[in-house]
Design a protein around this nucleic acid. Structure first.
Lengths: 334, 334
DNA sequence: CTGAAAGCGCTTACAG
DNA sequence: CTGAAAGCGCTTACAG
């Protein structure tokens, strides 16, 4: 690897001068500037960022910690993050936690050791003290997707309202017995969607039937199975319902399959509405009605936010930003 | 940030000694070892990896450069890469190129500046000189998925044979007029799949009909559109065919939609076979018959390989590894 | 406008 | 077994 010394030698100046022209900081004479640039070019010099980082304590790197990139919501978020990071010359390190708080902690340790300037994290959310600590240290961090009960910068949607709207839509279009596949109730986001479901029924004067509340707390990426099993069980037990609110698109897809397997039609016999608006949800049969989350924007906004935090010395005032969601009606609801 | 000096002071030894116990390199007296570890613990000391890297020129980081993480084949590959990287204490930096060779070059520059120890890359493949250079410099690199006409370590499948087998299966099950959605012919992998298609027909004594060769060279992530448009056009022009070999699952999904939109049935009227075996290809209707690629293993193997290359001084002997693919028959073929 | 020097936080021969 | 010193490749006050 060619160093600044060699460039300096070739250009007939001191390393300090080379550094100065490269960083455009000080005033340097035009002709020496040219000599230096020529030397840089001819030697194909690349400054060593480790050495640079060692001086100023910055690495122009941010960490992105998520449960699992195989969950189709995360690639979109990751693109949002990477696109803005790249725009500002930052690089992103990806870590998967598989919903395991221990792996999450380890990853954070590892990334801090590597001097990432900031962190974007969709937390496993079972334990959060380690995140609270980070926040208190003033380490640039933004939590996405999964809202936490701590003071921190967060970028999320209003899951209660979105679920409320989705279920209200079902009610408005004549559905009365609406089942829910409720999702992992350890996560606030699913609790909120569940609450939205209940409140919508309540507000419409429809009683909450506990037999229509289904789904387990599994974290598996095989989410469609949860939807399949839940609805399949309802159908096997001859429990009547005219719609299902699935708290994720994957669960909705499982639900649709269960309904078809029982030789019933979607939406003629049973309507299904999902949540997430995954890219392929419009490609299934019937195309899925669902709640659209602005995943790309969440990632992009999170990246802007950490970058901003990184540039400040005292990243004060944690705030939570609510991003808009949108009800998308396709063909799985009548 | 606490430094090694502070630890040394607290433990009442020299920084050299602290370094020694941390790296377990030399022989250190048991009791001083304990003193040091106690100090490390109480100060929550994390060695600065920038300083470490500056010494030994290693960062324990590898770069993963792919066209687009939103293309559903890449998250699986990325998991394979990350899992083995993490196992060995490595960290992975993700870059998307959007099939743009310029962005690819920039990313490589950026990563090398950051001193990644090695690179895994699914290249844009329009120009490859920059990759050839890397290889010649002896920089640890492995090319995945997209085979190149250069000497380099590569991990790919046998696209010709896999396509040959898929089309042969269609022929064996009674199909005669088999359309193909051929994919971007600038990429060797699609050329190989196309060749496999032609050879299978030839070997069965079936003439190649040019009107059945469809699809454009688009790089769009909206691949299902290519499949939709191709098959839709065939149908609109009343061209007869009893099967379509789509060179990706996304194209297959588009093809199925086009067929359904023309009120024809899959597979009763027209069989469809895909390529990739995406995670959701079993969830669509009908569940898709396809060629399964071992994406996770490709990622994992690639990571093992670069790590191995990183540890050697002279990473000699570029070789291409062929991973197994498998024909998966579900319900979209009769 | 430019150079010599110090220092970022480590590691590792070199002494002892 | 342990410490002092040099050096990794930069940047940046400090002189001049």
């Amino acid at each position: 690897m060619v160093t600044i010394k060699e460039v300096a030698k070739k250009a007939g100046v001191s390393p300090s001068t080379v550094s100065r022209v490269l960083n455009g900081s000080d005033v340097v004479a035009e002709d020496t500037k040219e000599k230096v640039m020529a030397a840089v070019k001819s030697l194909n010099y690349r400054p060593n960022f480790l050495a640079q980082g060692l001086k100023d304590g910055k690495t122009k790197t941010i960490g992105l910690i998520i449960p699992n990139i195989r969950n189709p919501i995360y690639p979109v978020i990751a693109r949002g993050v990477e696109d803005v990071a790249r725009k500002y010359g930052y690089t992103v390190i990806l870590c998967n936690t598989d919903e395991d708080t221990e792996i999450e902690k380890e990853s954070i340790q590892k990334l801090r050791k590597r001097w990432v300037d900031g962190l974007i994290i969709a937390p496993a959310a079972k334990k959060v003290e380690h995140l609270e600590e980070l926040e208190q240290e003033g380490f640039p961090m933004v939590v996405i997707v999964r809202k936490l009960d701590i003071k921190a910068n967060m970028i999320v949607i209003d899951n209660f309202q979105a679920a409320y709207d989705a279920v209200s839509f079902l009610i408005k279009t004549g559905h009365r017995r609406i089942a829910i596949v409720k999702g992992n109730q350890q996560l606030a986001l699913y609790r909120d969607r569940f609450s939205g479901y209940k409140q919508a029924l309540l507000d419409a004067g429809i009683p909450i039937e506990y037999e229509l509340i289904t789904g387990d707390d599994s974290d598996s990426i095989q989410w469609s199975l949860d939807g399949y099993n839940a609805v399949n069980s309802l159908l096997n037990r001859n429990i009547e319902f005219d719609a299902v609110f699935a708290t994720t698109d994957l669960r909705a897809i499982g639900a649709i399959r269960a309904i078809k397997d029982h030789n019933l039609r979607v939406p003629d016999d049973i309507s299904v509405i999902g949540f997430d608006n995954l890219e392929f949800s419009s490609l299934i049969d019937p195309p899925l009605s669902t709640v659209s989350q602005p995943f790309y924007d969440i990632g992009a906004r999170a990246a802007s936010k950490v970058l901003q935090l990184c540039s400040k010395d005292n990243p004060s005032g944690a705030m939570v930003e609510i991003m808009p969601s949108e009800l998308i009606i396709r063909k799985s609801t009548r």
